[in-house]
């Protein structure tokens, strides 16, 4: 773990500890994501974890060449579940990029004429 990440993690924890338990909104409507998420029971428990996952993913994005603002914006567009799956896995998950269909055209042709459906 990089020092920068540790620092950010500490900041996040500090902020989370201060703000999260004392969150008092005027309205106490139950949110739609709370109702539609399958893991509702664990929602409160994983609140801090979500913040950490997001912080980690932002720093991983930065390590992969995004500037800080871009990295934050992009992580913000993900759901808690998506960030949870991605955090720490960013170099292991597929990244679609190449379009060199020609490489396998030969193989395609062999199969193409034998079997199509």
């Amino acid at each position: 773990m990089t020092t920068a990440f540790k620092k950010m993690m500490c900041r996040f924890l500090a902020v989370a500890l201060i703000t999260l338990p004392f969150q008092t909104g005027q309205a106490s409507m139950i949110g739609t994501d709370q109702v539609s998420s399958a893991a509702t029971v664990q929602a409160n428990r994983s609140l801090v974890l979500n913040h950490l996952n997001r912080a980690q993913t932002v720093s991983e994005f930065q390590a992969l060449g995004l500037d800080a603002q871009q990295a934050r914006d992009r992580v913000a567009a993900m759901t808690d579940e998506e960030v949870g799956k991605l955090a720490g896995q960013i170099n292991a998950v597929p990244a679609g990029g190449d379009g060199l269909v020609a490489v396998i055209l030969v193989v395609f042709f062999i199969w193409y004429f034998a079997f199509r459906r």
Partner: peptide
């Protein structure tokens, strides 16, 4: 993602 020379599924969504 420049360093991965590609795009992640999560980000496509």
């Amino acid at each position: 993602l420049p360093a991965r020379q590609g795009s992640l599924q999560v980000e496509m969504l």
